[in-house]
Amino acid sequence: MTANSSKDIAITTLLSVGQHPLSARPRRAEEDARALEVMLQFAPASMKALHAGDTADAQNLTVLKDYLGMGIPSIDVIPTSADSDAAEALASYLANAGDGQPHILLTGTRSEVGESSGFLPYLLAEKLAIPFVPNICDILSIDMAAGVAEVMQSLPRGQRRKIKTQLPFVASVGMAAAIPRQSSFGAARRGVINTVSSIDTVADEAQTAWKTEPARKRPKRLKVVKAKTAAERFKAATAKVQSSGGEKIYEVDKAAEAILKLLKEEKVL
């Protein structure tokens, strides 16, 4: 597999408008920016960015400009209104793309506004009938002849796993991926926002019945004492938590063995 053939593919990144957790200002969605960064670093022959949203909103445009500033020449925008289902619009656009369908479709794991269900990439993969790999942090290699790709998946606790998947595929990029580059003003000015000719969008009717409010603090679970007798209640209230009072070793020659034994028991070695 030569370097050229592996880059001879088309990748599309889906971009959304994020929201800063404290100031609530629109910003690049952190995971989408990372997905874009993964694509830019892999530098395939064809790179595209796709956004479904409201182009009339000036704040959304600034965010799209921020993405353009990362060095992608253009962003295709599917115009949808705020209350319509972006997943449906994207799915029907991509399904009808024909030859323009990318080999790899990158997204973030979940959006920073709205329902934030992280369901969109699964829906796209299902509609396009291609595999989906969640939470990747890098594209390792692509073998066009065999029609497979290797990606690095990030697991909890900083672990990594290699996954081999068939092409084409959808992948979501998590926070473990490389930090996205800064947006540069010149590139942002040069970049173009193309509006895709209209697509039938479906209004998201289910969501109109929902009630959305600022997140309440979740109550902490208390330790409930379920004692039947007064004696048990008394014990629960007064008994000290038993300290395990670990083993103490004073000899140097036994120490290393004891430590390694515990480490093996805990399966960290």
């Binding site: 929201q19 957790p21 609530a24 979940r110 959006s111 920073e112 506004v113 709205g114 329902e115 934030s116 289910a206 019945a209 929902w210 009630k211 959305t212 409010e213 600022p214 997140a215 309440r216």
Partner: peptide
């Protein structure tokens, strides 16, 4: 449910 990456609560059927 938590929505908007944990910033909102959504009450739904």
């Amino acid at each position: 449910c938590r929505g908007a990456a944990g910033k909102t609560d959504i009450t739904r059927p």
